[in-house]
Write a protein that binds this DNA or RNA. Structure first.
Lengths: 240, 240
DNA sequence: CCATAGGATTCATCAGATGAATATGGATGC
DNA sequence: GCATCCATATTCATCTGATGAATCCTATGG
């Protein structure tokens, strides 16, 4: 079936040759001849630049060019940051998307967590508390990001993972809440503790509930209707 | 806050000049001078090609180049189709993403539907039934796509909309179910009728439930755990 | 055997030229 | 006066060729 072809000759060539991530691509001058009728270097360069922008190839002098590992993030990152640079308020849309995604894939992710993951999350919790209560108070942004991404680490869906990764990149770039008061951040980590404890005790529902409540702290409040409504499905549980 | 800068000089320039969608950009030779120190035309061209691939600008001879309307879809499309061309099975991941998104934003979308929208959906239902029962049986792919996208037409979230649009583009390209038996497609549209009737009567929960059941017909079954678990939240409804 | 220096390879960027597509404006006819 | 058609100029599309910088490879000397 399928037989999908892309606009880019270069990408089609990469696909056709079945290069694996990490593989070295031919040099530019080789690419000109190989597989297409005398294309100029400039044209190859244009397509290379697109592939590079999408995070598909790593292109550096002499090393040849290497095919990168699969990731959905760079393309989304590029597009989102263009939107954010034009109007930061677009972050709110992406924030809503992220909240719904985490809510929606919550159990699937939680069930894949290992003991190491949980310990790692405990580490972030401790580190965050330390930053918030230390002599020189610092906001634990990195820990916040790491805590949430760890929950979804083993989720078997590169697209969802990519979107979540980009969310945190945007979160850092937009610098929301950077100047929020201390109590806000303390509340956030109180919720994180509730989430982690619930996960550790295997009660993913409680963890999810804590997560949903915790999102209400965000300046950019997600609309919670569907969380509630989806929840309303329980009573007459979806029939097999 | 913010102060987000991109790698691309061209994109930064576009942002800085605050061009609106539809606006004509300077010509390539003008861009070389304007705002950056003597950049070669080839370099401008590379960045233009990236912007074009992302669906940001429409670039044609003589017209100058026009800034396109905001859309998240092209970037996602490009990246997804590269993945699909390498391995069609990636569709399954995107399919799961789509199901969770529709489930998760269901009520928010339904509440924005107008009478016209519902009539339009009724039209797709009739057309689909007609295709399935006609002399020369045809599979109503276009109606399937239109039916679902109409539900989310007024959803105020360009990112979610973009992802859903791309899903249907991929759905058409991958040609899944094209050769599925007739009864499968008839069942699909029976569910659609249930969904639409429920929406028209204002019972969005029932519509959502029908939607979730209807996704089980897909070859690529979404994991329904989180739907159920999210549902489990009802009983002890999330506290304000 | 190892370290360093020089050469070769390859990307990065530029300059300039030609061809093709299209909008503009003027000439023509009604 | 208005519409239509054609020539021309503008602008993108692509190519050729050249130079510089970064990196790897190799040879040379200790």
């Amino acid at each position: 079936m399928a037989d999908i072809r892309l606009d880019s000759d270069l990408l089609n060539y990469i696909i056709q040759e079945q290069f694996e991530p990490g593989a070295r691509l031919p040099t530019i001058s080789e690419l000109q001849d190989e597989s297409r009728l005398g294309v100029s270097a400039s044209k190859v360069r244009e397509e290379l630049e697109v592939a590079r922008a999408l995070g598909l190839v790593d292109v550096r002098s002499k090393t040849g060019m290497r095919l990168k590992e699969y990731s959905f993030a760079p393309a989304v990152h590029l597009r989102l940051f263009y939107a954010l640079a034009r109007d930061v308020r677009y972050f709110e849309y992406f924030s809503a998307l992220r909240t719904h995604l985490e809510m929606s894939f919550w159990h699937e992710a939680c069930e894949l967590l290992t003991l190491e993951d949980k310990n790692e999350m405990r580490g972030y919790l401790v580190a965050a508390r330390s930053k918030l209560s230390g002599q020189r108070i610092r906001i634990p942004f990195e820990e916040h990001r790491a805590f949430h991404l760890t929950v979804f680490r083993h989720l078997d869906n590169p697209f969802v993972l990519g979107l979540l990764e980009v969310y945190w990149e945007a979160y850092a770039a937009v610098e929301l809440n950077r100047y929020a008061d201390l109590s806000y951040h303390q509340q956030v980590w109180d919720y994180h503790e509730r989430i982690l404890d619930a996960i550790c005790s295997g009660d993913f529902d409680a963890a999810q509930k804590a997560f949903i409540e915790h999102t209400r702290l965000l300046h950019h409040q997600p609309r919670m209707q569907d969380v509630d409504h989806a929840a309303a499905l329980v009573e007459n549980k979806v029939t097999e």
